[in-house]
Amino acid sequence: MSGRFSMISILVLAIMSMSLLVNCSSSDEEPDEVTLQINWVHEAEFVGYYVADAKGFYDDENINITIAEGGPGIQARLYMLDGSADFAIAAVSEHRDLVAAGEPAVAVMTAFQIPPLVMFSLTDSGIREPKDMVGKRVGIKNNYWRDVAHEMLTNAGIDPSEIVEVEVEVGAQELLYSREVDVWMGFATSEPIEAQVQGYEVTNIYAADYGVGGYEGLLLVNQATIDQNPDMIGRFVRACQKGWQYAVEHSDEAAEILALWQPDKSVEFQQLAVRAAIPLVDTPQALIGWIDADRWKQLMGDAYSESMPGYTMEYMESVE
């Protein structure tokens, strides 16, 4: 009798010890400190990452994230390359340059399936498509936007020289309202929303409708990080994808979370911004964050090589 008791006691102790060890190993493991460098100020185009943080998806993956804000003049991708940040957000064109230059930057997911780049006008101006811009004043913030505008116009069969380019400062959107310029450019999730909130009805002319851009908001990671800590990358990508999925399916809640990161904008603004992002992020043709191989090759153009394609879907493939 006592022998049986002692056997049971040993068994119970063993099970308890094992469970304690398992608990200790899972909970005591130090979380990965991960820095995500975004390429612009906090706004709706990064909402998936904020939501993943707020909903604890990073915590679930044992990741302690720091989202570092970008802005004018901040080359987020360079922070990733020099090791200041683990991940960086970049535009396709920026990444194409890195790939062409042989930099060890690898895209592991994309936020936008459709680029949110837009040219927009006040609706009452009657400018609804590129051909309406002939002879109109288009605000150009920098070369990046100039290239976008030229490509859109060219694809639409318009000679870019037929528009009047007006050099403008970032944020000088008042010029549109005062009709000193007729067309403004920006992200569908930001500048047109601002105009709407200001009470202006605007017409968006998407660059994507004219074959400009592809994916947008690429999540880049250094090849060295992939080599050293692929597990962390998998967990990070999984949490990000989950954050974006949650954001598009719960736009109002996502807007409230976003408002915490961008407190200078109203919740109404954020709601419109998130709703504008939804059809660009989530398309029926692809899983959120997914990069299609053919499309990627097309986007990369000459920069693409099989040996160094500049992207991998290895981590997205583990997403349920």
Partner: peptide
């Protein structure tokens, strides 16, 4: 639709 000619759609299903 104007402005669409010349676009390559070979990646689309």
């Amino acid at each position: 639709r104007a402005g669409q000619e010349g676009e390559k759609h070979n990646i689309y299903d």
